[in-house]
Computed example of a mutant assay.
Amino acid sequence: MKSSAKIMYGLTIFLAAMAVIYIFATMHVDDKGSTPGLEWVGAVALVLSTGLTLMLGVYLHFTEVRVDVLPEDWEEAEVADKAGTLGFFSPSSIWPAAMAGAVGFLGFGIIYFHYWMIFVGAGILVFTVAKLNFQYGVPREKH
């Protein structure tokens, strides 16, 4: 975790430097003596990427303080030290496939800009996300 925070801080410094260089490079004076102005798309993308890596670095830094030493940060760690349960994955759940279909339907609605497809796709997506989250939390009927 400590190394991840350092990587994000390093990326933040790199992207901040590239943003400054990019902003000054796009505001140069051309051969005719006119200033074309700032190229906004690249400047905004670099500034937002800098903010994103800074947020990730701060998050990883704060979580590193609360967590014990991880095998990634231990010099003598072996592969078996990280082994363990990764989580519970439902083997027969239909809801991930249904969510993918809902995202596809919503995507087609956004692409073709049909309001009814957007509303129906968003509704189906909310429904399938709820069913995925609650599929093991809702008790079965007793009768």
Rank of each mutant, 00 (worst) to 15 (best):
M1A: 15
K2L: 15
K2Y: 15
S4D: 14
S4G: 15
A5S: 15
I7E: 12
G10F: 14
I13D: 07
I13A: 14
I13M: 11
F14W: 12
F14P: 05
L15G: 02
A17Y: 11
A17G: 12
M18F: 13
A19M: 11
A19I: 03
V20D: 00
I21R: 04
Y22H: 10
T26V: 04
M27R: 05
M27T: 12
M27C: 12
H28M: 05
V29M: 11
V29G: 00
D30N: 09
D30C: 00
D31V: 03
K32S: 08
G33I: 02
S34W: 01
S34N: 07
T35N: 11
P36I: 01
P36G: 03
L38Q: 02
L38M: 13
W40F: 10
W40S: 05
V44I: 15
A45Y: 09
T50R: 02
G51T: 04
G51F: 08
L52G: 06
T53I: 02
M55N: 06
M55S: 12
L56K: 06
L56G: 05
L56F: 13
G57A: 05
L60H: 11
L60E: 13
F62I: 07
T63W: 03
R66K: 15
V67L: 10
V69D: 11
L70W: 05
D73H: 02
D73W: 01
W74I: 00
E78Y: 02
E78Q: 10
V79T: 10
A83K: 11
G84K: 09
G87V: 09
G87E: 05
G87K: 08
F89R: 10
F89T: 13
S90V: 07
P91H: 10
P91F: 08
S92F: 12
I94Y: 10
W95Q: 08
P96K: 07
A97E: 08
A97Y: 15
A98Y: 06
M99I: 15
G101A: 14
A102C: 13
A102Q: 01
V103I: 15
F105H: 06
G107T: 08
G109L: 07
Y112I: 09
F113T: 10
F113Y: 12
Y115G: 14
Y115N: 10
W116A: 12
W116Q: 09
I118H: 03
F119D: 00
A122V: 01
A122L: 13
V126E: 00
V126C: 02
V126A: 14
L132M: 02
L132A: 05
N133D: 00
Y136M: 04
G137K: 15
V138N: 06
V138A: 06
E141G: 09
H143P: 03
H143M: 06
H143C: 01
